[in-house]
Simulated assay, not measured.
Amino acid sequence: MRLPKLSRVLAALAATTMAAFGAVAVEATPASAAVRNVCYNTSQAGPFASYANQAASIWNNATANINMAQCGSNLMIYYTYGGGSYAQRTSLGNGRVVIDYYQAQQYSPLRIMTHEIGHILGLPDNYNGNCAILMSGGSAGTSCTNPYPSSGEAAAVDRNFSSFARTAATSGVFADSWPAPAAVGAAR
């Protein structure tokens, strides 16, 4: 059963507020539902914390089997200056995302964040250059700002989270989704 969007947004807001006070909200679901909590942490995300929150909301609204909230550190969000944006998945729904500050000045930071979280949720890169496909990453070019997964990508995440039997085969580092940024002045 899929919750209406407003209910999911309110639940995420309540979880965020409770997390600020040290409490963890876990949404009650029927035993037949396959909703899994993906707890993320933006304490090291710097200027990209709001993008992580927006990306979590996008994934919550696009899927039925996950609930992303700031309720722990299964998924850590970081940023760096140079070296490229990437995701390192340790198991399904767990790992870290690193956003390259310089790349985020050339490409849509929200698209980068949502794409990299897609890797944590079990999606591979798809270098077809199609802006409508979130996992096409930087191959869609700098003018592509679409941060939304296609219905096929959302369905794949739902399938991934309907069973955790595949977690051992879904770890890895996903780098080079975004072309290297143009030459920048001296590194900080």
Rank of each mutant, 00 (worst) to 15 (best):
residue 81 Y to I: 08
residue 34 A to Q: 13
residue 17 T to R: 05
residue 104 A to M: 04
residue 112 I to E: 03
residue 180 A to F: 05
residue 95 G to Q: 10
residue 142 T to D: 00
residue 67 N to F: 15
residue 106 Q to D: 09
residue 74 N to F: 06
residue 143 S to E: 04
residue 152 G to T: 08
residue 131 C to W: 01
residue 175 A to E: 11
residue 157 V to E: 00
residue 80 T to Q: 15
residue 6 L to V: 13
residue 170 T to D: 10
residue 129 G to F: 02
residue 163 S to G: 03
residue 41 N to E: 09
residue 67 N to I: 01
residue 132 A to T: 10
residue 26 V to D: 10
residue 159 R to P: 00
residue 160 N to M: 11
residue 131 C to H: 08
residue 178 W to N: 03
residue 102 Y to D: 03
residue 158 D to L: 03
residue 32 S to H: 12
residue 68 M to C: 10
residue 55 A to N: 07
residue 137 G to Y: 12
residue 8 R to F: 08
residue 39 C to T: 04
residue 87 A to V: 05
residue 173 V to E: 09
residue 127 Y to N: 13
residue 159 R to A: 10
residue 21 F to I: 09
residue 159 R to Q: 11
residue 67 N to R: 13
residue 78 Y to E: 06
residue 107 Y to A: 04
residue 111 R to I: 07
residue 139 S to Q: 07
residue 180 A to H: 06
residue 11 A to G: 06
residue 169 A to N: 13
residue 171 S to F: 13
residue 172 G to I: 05
residue 174 F to K: 07
residue 144 C to H: 07
residue 147 P to G: 07
residue 136 S to L: 03
residue 187 A to Q: 14
residue 64 A to G: 11
residue 18 M to G: 02
residue 129 G to M: 02
residue 160 N to A: 12
residue 66 I to M: 04
residue 95 G to R: 06
residue 71 C to A: 15
residue 154 A to D: 00
residue 122 G to P: 08
residue 165 A to H: 01
residue 148 Y to L: 05
residue 21 F to L: 06
residue 167 T to E: 14
residue 43 S to T: 15
residue 174 F to P: 01
residue 17 T to A: 13
residue 15 A to V: 06
residue 86 Y to E: 08
residue 141 G to S: 07
residue 79 Y to A: 01
residue 85 S to R: 08
residue 42 T to S: 12
residue 178 W to V: 01
residue 114 T to N: 05
residue 174 F to A: 05
residue 151 S to P: 00
residue 48 F to T: 00
residue 112 I to R: 10
residue 45 A to G: 11
residue 26 V to S: 07
residue 94 N to K: 09
residue 102 Y to H: 05
residue 134 L to G: 11
residue 115 H to D: 05
residue 140 A to E: 01
residue 32 S to L: 10
residue 1 M to H: 03
residue 55 A to R: 05
residue 3 L to I: 02
residue 11 A to C: 01
residue 45 A to F: 06
residue 139 S to T: 15
residue 151 S to L: 02
residue 170 T to I: 06
residue 16 T to A: 12
residue 104 A to Q: 07
residue 35 V to P: 03
residue 18 M to D: 05
residue 34 A to E: 14
residue 161 F to C: 11
residue 96 R to C: 11
residue 89 R to S: 14
residue 91 S to V: 08
